[in-house]
């Protein structure tokens, strides 16, 4: 009895940790439910009840272990972790790793996860801005300055979202930075069109993950989490818009 109890405890812990990591890093709700149910079934639990929301998960198994709650406090976008949890769950289903090893890997995922190096992220933000400016506006001479402005704007976003714990502040501040830099670059003769530079430079800030997940969640019937994500996307888009509008008003 005690053995079963311990095992159920471990199943709950593993499934809840997997679910928390996936939601924290921008997975859609249906995938989380699917993965958690699979973990429970593959670990030998007969039935499991789940309640997954964007701010917390509730899960219970049949037996004498009570239901457990896992709150979700922060949300970032790190699709690599979702992919790692997916791979681990697949390996567990094929019985390549044990439940204990699975739980251990999940517990250490937050500490061991690797981001792309900072210089590569900077380069990537430049390479989102410049090429999209050319694709949207066909303005080749402004390619270089758009790369530079987009990179600086994104690095402001990165630094602020790392050190200031207020949501949507980073989007606003980096939009203001982009606007000011674009106006200055035209003033000093580095660029031809303020409009084109700004359009390209704000592209790295586009809230792509919440928009996509919002549509998918609503369609899957998660009528609480889907619109919540939609609001998140809308507010960050509005923060960017207000930042740009403020600059255009004053300069």
């Amino acid at each position: 009895m005690a053995v079963k109890r311990k095992r159920d405890q471990l199943i709950l812990h593993t499934a809840l940790t997997a679910g928390r990591i996936m939601i924290e890093n921008g997975s859609e709700i249906e995938r989380v439910e699917d993965t958690m149910t699979r973990i429970a079934v593959n670990a030998g639990a007969k039935t499991s009840q789940l309640f997954v929301m964007i701010t917390g998960i509730l899960m219970s198994l049949d037996g004498d272990v009570g239901a457990q709650i896992q709150p979700i406090k922060r949300r970032t976008f790190d699709l690599e972790k979702i992919s790692v949890v997916n791979d681990l769950s697949r390996q567990f289903a094929e019985k390549k790793i044990t439940l204990a090893a699975f739980a251990n890997r999940l517990d250490h995922l937050d500490a061991t996860s690797k981001y792309f190096p900072f210089w590569l992220q900077l380069l990537a933000s430049a390479l989102v801005s410049g090429p999209l400016e050319v694709v949207f506006r066909h303005n080749l001479p402004d390619f270089w300055i758009t790369c530079v402005v987009g990179m600086l704007g994104w690095s402001v976003f990165y630094v602020i979202s790392k050190y200031v714990p207020i949501r949507f502040m980073a989007e606003f501040a980096s939009a203001v930075t982009i606007g000011v830099l674009a106006v200055w670059s035209q003033h000093f003769g580095l660029g031809n069109s303020v409009d084109d530079i700004i359009i390209g430079s704000v592209m790295p800030l586009v809230p792509g993950v919440p928009i996509t997940n919002s549509v998918r969640d609503i369609l899957a019937g998660n009528l609480v989490s889907g619109p919540a994500r939609g609001i998140e996307a809308l507010v960050s888009a509005a923060a960017i818009g207000f930042g740009i509008a403020m600059v255009l008003q004053f300069l």
């Binding site: 790190d78 699709l79 690599e80 992919s83 981001y115 390479l127 090429p131 999209l132 790295p204 792509g208």
Partner: peptide, 21 residues
Amino acid sequence: GIEVAGTYVATIAFGILLNIP
């Protein structure tokens, strides 16, 4: 050709910002 190359580069770069494997 420029548009296609730009789209390809920008899509990959956005993927890097989201830390895609």
